[in-house]
Simulated scan of single mutants.
Amino acid sequence: MVRLLRKVVSGCTLLVATLAAWPLAAQQVVHVGGAVFPPYVAKAEQSQQAGLLPQLLDALNQLQSDFRFVVRPTSIPRRFRDFEQGRIDLSMFENPAWGWQGIAHSAVDMGLEDAEVYVALAKPGRGQDYFNRLRGKRLALFNGYNYGFADFNAEPQFLTKNFNATLSYSHDSNLLMVLHDRADIALVTRSYVRDFHERHGQYAGQLLVSARLDQRYQHQALLRPGAPISPQQLARLFEQLRGNGQLTAIFAPYQIAVSSGVADSSAATGVTD
C-alpha cells in the first residue's frame, strides 16, 4: 500500500512538473537582428541593452506568451546572410529597397514613420537653401547605409568618389565632424537628432537641420520564410501595442510618428521575392 501511494505521489509530481514546464517548452523563440541603427539599436555589441529595439521586444514579450523575441547581434551588411541562413528570423525598421530585392521575405507594416535629414553647422546667414545642392560639399555618412540622394547605392567607393563622402561607424562622430567644421553636411535620422541633443545639451542651437528629407522611413518588419511567427500574427501584435498605447510611449518621445492604425493588417503583409 505504501509503495502504491509513493508511486501515485511520484506520478502526480511528475505530471505537475510536466504541465508547469509545458508553456515554456511551447514558447517559440524569434531571433531579431540587432544591427547598428541608432536610436533603434545603439551598439551591436550592446544590442540587448541599448536602443528602442529592446524596448519594443520587451513590450512584445509582455503582451503574450506564445513567442519570445530576443535580439541576435548582427551588422548592416551581414544581416542579409544571417537572414537567408536562418540565424535571424526577423529584421525590424527596414525598407525592402535597402538591398532586400533578391531575398525572399514577408514585409509587415510597423505603422512607424521616421525620416533621414541633412544636418549642417548653423552659421549667420545660412538657411534652408544650403541643402539644395550636395555636390561640392563634404558629406559625413554612416558606412553601409543606403541613402536616397545616392539612389540607395551603399558602395563606399561610389560614395567617396561621387559625393566627397567620409564614411564612419558613428553618427555622433559624423555630427561632431560637422560641429568642428571637418564636414559640411551629415545625414542622420530625425530621431537621432533628438537623441543627440538630449545627450549633448552643450551643442544646442549649433546645428541646422534640413526641412528637406533625404528619405522618409515607413518602417517595415521583414520575416524570413519559415520564421516561427507568421506575418499575420506579427501584424496583430503590432496592432495590440498600438491600441494599448505602448508604441506611442516607446517611439513618440523620439519624434517617430505612430500611425493611428493599419487599415487592414493582412493587407500590410506581403511576400517579395
Results as ranks from 00 to 15, higher is better:
L176S: 09
F37W: 13
V36P: 00
A235P: 15
N162R: 13
V8Y: 14
T269P: 08
A267E: 11
D89G: 00
I76P: 02
R216L: 11
R6S: 06
S47I: 06
L223R: 04
L247N: 09
A104Q: 05
P39D: 03
S210K: 00
G243Y: 08
A21T: 12
P156V: 00
F142P: 08
A263C: 09
A115D: 06
L134D: 00
Q64G: 10
P253C: 12
G245W: 12
V71C: 09
Q218H: 14
S191E: 04
Q128I: 04
V178A: 03
D264P: 13
N61C: 12
S265Y: 04
P228L: 05
R199E: 09
A97P: 10
S260V: 09
A249R: 15
T18E: 11
G245Y: 15
Q27K: 15
A107P: 03
A268R: 01
S10V: 05
T74C: 01
A267M: 11
N244V: 10
Q62S: 13
V258E: 02
G201R: 14
G136N: 07
C12M: 14
T166S: 14
G11K: 12
W100T: 08
P228N: 14
H200Y: 13
Q202M: 10
V2F: 14
R79W: 00
F152T: 07
Q206Y: 07
F152K: 08
T13W: 07
R68M: 02
D129E: 12
V8Q: 13
L141H: 07
